[in-house]
Computed example of a mutant assay.
Amino acid sequence: MQFKALIASAFLATASASWSFNTTRLCGTPEPTQQQMRESLAMLEIERIALAKGHVKRQTSINVKTYFHVVASSNSLSGGYLTQAMLNDQLSVMNNAYGPHGISFSLVGSDWTVNANWAADGNEQAMKKALRKGTYSDLNIYFLGNLGGGLLGYCYFPTSSHSTGSTNFILDGCTILGQSVPGGNAAPYNLGGTATHEIGHWMNLYHTFQGGCAAPGDSVDDTPPEASAASGCPTGRDTCSGGGPDPIHNYMDYTDDACYTEFTSGQQARMYSAWSAYRS
Rank of each mutant, 00 (worst) to 15 (best):
residue 7 I to K: 15
residue 8 A to W: 01
residue 10 A to K: 15
residue 11 F to G: 01
residue 11 F to H: 10
residue 11 F to Q: 10
residue 14 T to G: 12
residue 14 T to L: 11
residue 21 F to S: 13
residue 23 T to Q: 14
residue 24 T to S: 15
residue 26 L to K: 14
residue 26 L to N: 06
residue 28 G to Y: 06
residue 30 P to R: 04
residue 34 Q to R: 13
residue 37 M to W: 04
residue 37 M to C: 11
residue 38 R to C: 03
residue 38 R to V: 13
residue 42 A to W: 05
residue 47 E to L: 10
residue 48 R to G: 09
residue 53 K to M: 14
residue 57 K to I: 02
residue 63 N to H: 07
residue 65 K to P: 06
residue 65 K to T: 12
residue 68 F to N: 07
residue 69 H to E: 08
residue 72 A to V: 02
residue 73 S to A: 15
residue 73 S to M: 12
residue 73 S to Q: 11
residue 75 N to F: 04
residue 81 Y to G: 00
residue 83 T to C: 03
residue 85 A to D: 13
residue 90 Q to D: 05
residue 90 Q to C: 03
residue 91 L to Q: 11
residue 94 M to N: 02
residue 96 N to E: 13
residue 102 G to K: 09
residue 103 I to F: 04
residue 103 I to W: 08
residue 103 I to P: 01
residue 109 G to M: 06
residue 116 A to E: 10
residue 119 A to L: 11
residue 120 A to V: 09
residue 122 G to T: 04
residue 123 N to C: 03
residue 128 K to N: 09
residue 129 K to S: 15
residue 133 K to I: 05
residue 137 S to L: 04
residue 140 N to P: 08
residue 140 N to Q: 07
residue 140 N to R: 02
residue 143 F to I: 11
residue 144 L to G: 03
residue 145 G to E: 10
residue 146 N to R: 12
residue 149 G to A: 09
residue 155 C to F: 01
residue 156 Y to H: 15
residue 159 T to I: 11
residue 160 S to W: 10
residue 163 S to Q: 15
residue 166 S to W: 05
residue 167 T to M: 11
residue 168 N to T: 14
residue 168 N to I: 05
residue 169 F to T: 08
residue 174 C to W: 01
residue 175 T to Y: 01
residue 179 Q to S: 15
residue 179 Q to T: 15
residue 180 S to C: 14
residue 182 P to D: 10
residue 185 N to D: 13
residue 185 N to Y: 11
residue 188 P to A: 03
residue 188 P to I: 07
residue 190 N to I: 07
residue 194 T to Y: 04
residue 196 T to P: 00
residue 201 H to N: 07
residue 201 H to L: 05
residue 201 H to D: 04
residue 202 W to L: 05
residue 202 W to V: 08
residue 205 L to P: 00
residue 206 Y to T: 04
residue 207 H to A: 01
residue 209 F to Q: 09
residue 210 Q to I: 00
residue 211 G to Q: 08
residue 211 G to R: 09
residue 211 G to P: 02
residue 214 A to W: 02
residue 216 P to C: 06
residue 216 P to G: 07
residue 220 V to D: 08
residue 221 D to P: 09
residue 221 D to W: 02
residue 224 P to W: 11
residue 229 A to I: 00
residue 232 G to R: 06
residue 233 C to R: 06
residue 233 C to I: 01
residue 237 R to M: 06
residue 238 D to C: 13
residue 247 P to I: 10
residue 252 M to Q: 14
residue 252 M to P: 01
residue 253 D to Q: 12
residue 258 A to P: 00
residue 262 E to S: 14
residue 264 T to M: 03
residue 266 G to N: 01
residue 267 Q to T: 08
residue 275 W to P: 04
residue 280 S to V: 04
